[in-house]
């Protein structure tokens, strides 16, 4: 127990959840067949806006993070409005360029502290620890110290948020909105002819992705204590893209699995840190060549579902056969 609860593993768990949220943000935009490479840019907006709000304006976290997401959404409008009229490739390039512009602006603004980045961002786990101390749990609870309690409660909060977002996405799939998204993804022209306002839905999906990425950025900032412009450069954008490409963007589960693997993989491959980008690059090329739908596609899920159901049926039969 003590072994599992060391700060490193707890931090890892937080990063896995943050990355899973980023994977979901990719999924939301990709569910209309659009490719946004701006997740890193939107994340940085969310991170900087919310960090500045908590540091300079003293806003509470539960307000600062959504405001950061909204700010990301606002900037998404600037790119989304002209590009969603056009072919998908425009959005991909414009969002990529947007990430670069955001990086340059952050590097040069005074309020963001330029290349040095912002440090001393109030940490969520310390906030929670303080709350526990105020509740009279300064000595910890049972075997848990107050620091572990703080960290664990942050993980619980993040996990709840993630579960909420997953439920939202699953629910979305079965709604009118989700069906419109799926129709646009399958064939944009056919969808338009069928009376779907493709531009509106494409914009909406793009905004949702940007908002979720902004939220993830705000949360990440309040976990890591420090953010700098380098954290959100091209490589980060590619890494987030990889979540969706490796896992697959057809279902909600794909990007989640992708982000899980890709957060743990660098830890497992510590000896090959120098080759990390090369491996990532190779994965992108190989996935596109051999399995463009990603590790988890709709067929994968259907296959496992039928297999599991069959197994269950066999078991039930055995049980009922035994009693007879």
């Amino acid at each position: 127990m003590e072994f599992l609860l060391n700060p490193y593993y707890l931090q890892m768990a937080m990063f896995i959840i943050i990355n899973a949220i980023l994977g979901l943000s990719m999924y939301l935009t990709m569910s209309t067949g659009q490719l946004s490479l701006g997740a890193a840019g939107f994340m940085s907006i969310g991170a900087y806006v919310s960090a500045l709000l908590t540091m300079k304006a003293g806003l509470p976290l539960y307000l600062a993070v959504p405001i950061g997401g909204a700010a990301a959404c606002l900037l998404a409008a600037v790119i989304g409005l002209p590009t969603t009229r056009l072919r998908g490739i425009y959005l991909a390039i414009a969002t990529l360029g947007f990430g670069e512009v955001v990086r340059v602006v952050i590097l040069n603004l005074k309020v963001t502290n330029g290349a040095l980045g912002l440090s001393g961002i109030p940490s969520m786990s310390i906030m929670m620890s303080k709350a526990f101390i105020a509740m009279g749990l300064g000595d910890g609870l049972g075997p848990l110290s107050v620091r572990q309690l703080g960290n664990l409660s942050v993980i619980v909060i993040l996990a709840l948020l993630l579960v909420g977002l997953i439920l939202f996405s699953v629910r979305l799939n079965n709604s009118r909105l989700g069906r419109a998204f799926a129709a646009i993804k399958a064939d944009e022209y056919a969808a338009e002819v069928s009376g779907i306002d493709t531009r509106y839905y494409k914009l909406l999906a793009f905004f949702m992705g940007a908002f979720v990425a902004g939220i993830a950025g705000g949360l990440a900032a309040h976990i890591t204590f420090f953010i700098g412009p380098k954290d959100f450069a091209y490589h980060r954008a590619v890494e987030i893209l990889l979540f969706a490409v490796l896992g697959g963007s057809d279902t909600v589960w794909g990007p989640l699995v992708g982000s899980f693997i890709l957060t743990l993989l660098p830890e497992a491959l510590r000896f090959a840190t120098e080759y990390r980008s090369m491996i990532y690059g190779a994965i992108l090329v190989l996935m596109m060549a051999f399995r463009p739908q990603g590790l988890i596609s709709e067929e994968t899920i259907r296959y496992w579902r039928t297999k599991l159901l069959a197994k269950k049926a066999v078991q039930q039969e055995e049980i009922s056969g035994g009693t007879n």
């Binding site: 072919r87 991909a92 690059g281 596109m288 060549a289 463009p292």
Partner: peptide, 18 residues
């Protein structure tokens, strides 16, 4: 999809850069 080559060449780009 037309975005697949884009993703594939992004892979080539970060491979070559590193």
């Amino acid at each position: 999809s037309e975005l697949a080559p884009l993703i594939s060449t992004i892979g080539v780009s970060i491979f070559l850069e590193s």
